[in-house]
Write a protein that binds this DNA or RNA. Sequence first.
DNA 1: ACAGTTTCCCGTAAATGC
DNA 2: TGCATTTACGGGAAACTG
Lengths: 404, 404
Amino acid sequence: EKQPWMPTHPQKPLIIKTGVQFTTKVRLLVKLPEVDYQLKVKTIFDKYLPPGRVHRQFFILTSTTKVMDVEESSNGCLSVEFRHLQLKEKKYVNGTKVNEGPLSVTEELHSLSFEAQFNIQGINIDLETCSFPLVVISNVSQLTGGWASIMWYNMLTDEPRNPDFFASPPRASWGQLSEVLSWQFSTFTGQGLNREQLCMLGEKLMGQQASHNECQVSWSKFCKLLVESFSNKKITSLPLNLLPVVKENIPGKPFSFWMWLDFILELIKKHLLPIWNDNCIMGFVSKETERACLKDKEPGTFLLRFSESHLGGITFTWVKQSDSGEAKLISVEPYTKSRLSALPFANIIRDYKVITDGEVPENPLKFLYPGIPKDESFRRHYNSPQSKVFPYISATWIPISTLQ
Amino acid sequence: EKQPWMPTHPQKPLIIKTGVQFTTKVRLLVKLPEVDYQLKVKTIFDKYLPPGRVHRQFFILTSTTKVMDVEESSNGCLSVEFRHLQLKEKKYVNGTKVNEGPLSVTEELHSLSFEAQFNIQGINIDLETCSFPLVVISNVSQLTGGWASIMWYNMLTDEPRNPDFFASPPRASWGQLSEVLSWQFSTFTGQGLNREQLCMLGEKLMGQQASHNECQVSWSKFCKLLVESFSNKKITSLPLNLLPVVKENIPGKPFSFWMWLDFILELIKKHLLPIWNDNCIMGFVSKETERACLKDKEPGTFLLRFSESHLGGITFTWVKQSDSGEAKLISVEPYTKSRLSALPFANIIRDYKVITDGEVPENPLKFLYPGIPKDESFRRHYNSPQSKVFPYISATWIPISTLQ
DNA sequence: ACAGTTTCCCGTAAATGC
DNA sequence: TGCATTTACGGGAAACTG
């Protein structure tokens, strides 16, 4: 017996949102002789609650039993697919809501059990199986946190069930973690992260180290602590719940490493997929590396990287010949999903202009690092102009910045 | 007894969306002596179904009884407010779903009844009252149609209840209708439409007439037929359900007069309120009037009007000195809510540029019709540039069109 | 007051039904 | 099959609640 899983959110399975339908399928791997009776399967949510601790409790709002059927696609074994299942929270369990302790809701692990019972040659046989750990959320804003839990669990344990996993979550080696992160990118882009990109992520998470692979990353560093600030390293490495105290000291970055990364994944998925897959986006580059890359390049050389200060933002940095003759690096305010839905990023790169007073506006982006003429890299991604809208003349946006 | 009404959608009361909470209040206008007992009120949805015809049927999902209370704000009379009421459709009434005839769902009129019963000095007294007609919708996309019904009903009858009103809806005189339309604008802008604007609407609906005020407008012309097309008047004046036949012949305008107008109302509400209230938008101007206004004006004179072909779009038309020396009018592709959320309209006017090959981009908008220097009209509506986003340089959009 | 969490519901997209 | 209508649910914001 085994439980494949049809998730609500295809890229983030094993997360169920209350009030949103999900689908699950159970297959009976043992072939039963003489199947001329109906085998009814029942699903139960959280059949085995961990004894000591108090979770939120949920129940399946919709019908929970269904009869198994011969599956045509496989070799004739029995299976049943539950569709339109929906979860709802039981409120006021025992009249009181018990404090849930230090775990956040996305660290609570739940499970879906399946039961069936049949009688063969006078012997009653009980079948039972159980899903991998599930996270239950109530709003899509919790998907990022929930998916962090699913990844951490499956990366670090082979146990099919351990609801207390996050009571003391083990650390991960960077070797393990980087593989998982890279895999996250490959799940929807077809390719993972390269060595340089992973190296930047390792540095961001663990600082400069001789060898990252042996480093251990804690759960809280991955997903609960604020991202290191370059300007103020010590103070920002505090749990989120200390944020108000800290807020006055450091502006920005009220997000964890994983939250930062997951927003980038979403940005790529929705707005950057073709140019990402075409390797036009260096993406994960520290400011130091960026400087090292660009400082000796000719003016007009640029690279694309994800903002470290703005969630889900991408920026470009280019080399400008300054008046003193020395090269200067300039980065544009990061483009986020809302701005990218006004104009696709490739068009922004094509049309971007800097206006310096008294001078003719100029596009400062000429060569994609290390030195490929811009249009050669991006031409195939430029959007063709929209069709005519007779009797009007069509209109679009030109992205600009004003320099002093 | 009387029923004020707290709507879900504040600007469009008397419309209830299934599954969305609404609130209603009943007040007892008779003052009862010696009120030392509890007066329980019960709400019933569609207590009196019209005998012959078959409506969709709904019921109140939530609790329907509540005890009246002395209202403090008024002079101590009894009242009760039902909150969190929610409507759900009864499916499969009597096992079959009967065809509903020619009425669309937004033409079905429903009602909410209130009952109370009390005993005073040995006499049983039944109280009962009923709301004005209500429209029930299942999606906000039906708000426009529902509100048309509410307006038409209340404009043309004083009956508190007539569920069959739309079986043969009376016509409205343009005098009545124009007053209601103007009032729609004033409900959220503080001022109605002026004579010229109303005149354009009258022409759009009824064609050129000596006196519009006496004209009668049918319900279907108001809200069910396609808007007249200037290029093809006859063919487009057909009911929406004939659209597929017509579609091949005429592009665009698959919407009724009221739908067109309501999208404009929404556009004003969300994106144009300050400049609308400042009378910068002439808005309702036919192409003929536009030409008459602008043809002798100096180049750079422009006006703002709502698109007749694009739902919820606003455009500007300006005078361009053409090569032949003759004035030429050019209109930009209408800006709709999605594009206006990228850049506010006032900024678009300020920054708009036309690029003609080989020439320096130029802003063709100089004088707001009849001749007010642009900045004088719009300066107070320009958005200040966004704050700095250190260490990035800020970026924005410049709206442009390319000519030839 | 406040942060974590849930609820609410618009608006788009997809599904459903006639 | 096509349109009218409903359902689904992401996403932003408000409400809730210890």
